[in-house]
């Protein structure tokens, strides 16, 4: 221990202690944080895929018991922590897991969108298990393009490029298939904008909840959100808004988001008037007042 005593007063000693302490906290947090069991589930799932023998069903069961049952119960009937999901349907499972909301970290709070904990294959396996054992409900709208393929899911570049091109084509085809811009706009501005705002930027709701921004949602997730009504959001089933109308609506949202900002390179996040007023004061008026100070100050030296 002598060397410690000797170096105790070294100028760098303080920094070393702080760094050690931070590392300790970091490692400790990584162990204790709720992310841990998700990571575990992920490795488990990865091992499982490696095993060719295992069917989708078994993989799905493992994922469900590992990551979902603790809150939703072994039979999906819910607990005091989480709702019954027996009638949520495949669309809800796909939406909740592919947007990273489930598995939840904190059953008391609204879940933000996150990178999903499982790959699409694993989600499909989970759904196979769900439909076999747990329950049923709205189905996944397979004809609507889902999430773009990820490079990491492919062995070689070529397969990825091909899958990506195919995805792009179906995406374009879906949006172009929408016939009525006006209907899409009216549907969106009548049914969705009062929560998600005109630009899909999202907005505050009562009681500490919020409607998230829609920029990252794939057309399929948009569709699934409508048919399942996650959290505070109402359900817009295929009776209230028909699949064709949904297509118009989704095309409107996606086209609007792809729209360049014709008015200038700074779009102020399309937040609108609050940001404009802020810039008007902090940039516009401030620059002008600074100039006034400059003009009058220069003069003073002469008189």
């Amino acid at each position: 221990m002598k060397w410690i005593t000797a170096r105790r007063r070294h100028p760098l000693a303080g920094y070393v202690v702080v760094i050690l302490a931070l590392t300790l906290f970091g490692v400790g947090y990584a162990y204790l944080a709720p992310g841990a069991d998700r990571a575990e589930a992920q490795t488990l799932a990865a091992e499982a895929t490696a095993d060719d023998e295992q069917t989708d069903y078994a993989l799905g069961r493992d994922i469900f018991t590992q990551s979902c049952a603790s809150c939703h119960g072994d039979a999906g009937t819910g607990s005091q922590n989480a709702p019954d999901i027996t009638d949520a349907g495949a669309a809800a499972i796909d939406f909740q897991v592919s947007t990273g909301r489930m598995p939840s970290m904190n059953p008391d709070a609204q879940m933000p969108r996150k990178p999903p904990a499982f790959t699409q294959d694993e989600i499909d396996a989970l759904i196979t298990y769900y439909e076999a054992e747990i329950g049923s409900g709205p189905a996944i709208p397979e004809e609507v393009p889902g999430t773009a393929p990820e490079r990491a899911d492919f062995e070689d570049e070529e397969a990825y490029e091909a899958a990506h091109a195919e995805y792009e084509a179906s995406y374009e085809a879906y949006l172009d298939g929408a016939e009525d811009v006006e209907a899409g706009m009216k549907l969106y501005l009548t049914n969705c904008a009062h929560c998600h705002s005109w630009s899909g930027e999202g907005g505050a709701l009562t009681d500490g909840k919020w409607a998230p921004e829609l920029h990252e949602a794939s057309p399929r997730q948009l569709y699934e959100a409508m048919v399942t009504g996650p959290g505070q959001m109402p359900v817009f089933n295929d009776m209230t808004i028909t699949p064709e109308e949904k297509q118009d609506l989704i095309a409107y949202v996606k086209d609007l988001q792809a729209e360049p900002n014709a008015g200038g390179i700074f779009d102020l996040n399309r937040i609108g008037q609050v940001a404009e007023g802020f810039i008007g004061w902090t940039v516009g008026l401030s620059l002008i007042v600074a100039c006034a100070i400059w003009i009058t100050a220069k003069q003073r030296a002469h008189d």
Binding site: L189, T190, A193, S197, W198, G203, L256, A262, Q273, G280
Partner: peptide, 19 residues
């Protein structure tokens, strides 16, 4: 051009008047 025309049924959050 991004907002779209007004119709009496349209409504959106996140809109303010000018400052």
């Amino acid at each position: 051009h991004l907002f779209g025309p007004f119709t009496p049924t349209s409504i959106t959050s996140g809109l303010q008047p000018d400052w």
